[in-house]
């Protein structure tokens, strides 16, 4: 029983390695237009404006930059 539990735990730990970090040189994939939450930039800006008018708060939807994590 103890052995089974240990093996199960080891299996669980090994499965964690399947979650890999996006490497710095791969961050271009994140900067692609198809990765954006809002496909239409103009429509996104309009929706943000409406949201800001109604909720008196803005931001949190996206960030500027190419995703290189350098600045």
């Amino acid at each position: 029983m103890r052995l089974l539990r240990l093996l199960g735990f080891a299996g669980l730990l090994l499965s964690v390695t399947a979650c890999t970090q996006v490497q710095p040189w791969e961050r271009g994939y994140l900067a692609r237009p198809e990765m954006a939450w809002k496909a239409d930039v103009l429509e996104g800006a309009l929706n943000d404006h409406i949201f800001f008018s109604k909720e008196a708060s803005s931001g949190g939807s996206s960030a500027a930059g190419g995703g290189c994590g350098c600045n």
Binding site: W25, R27, G28, A31, G65, G66, G67, C68, C70, N71
Partner: peptide, 8 residues
């Protein structure tokens, strides 16, 4: 090391 998506 550089890429076209990296502004700096």
């Amino acid at each position: 090391f550089w890429a076209s998506w990296c502004a700096p």
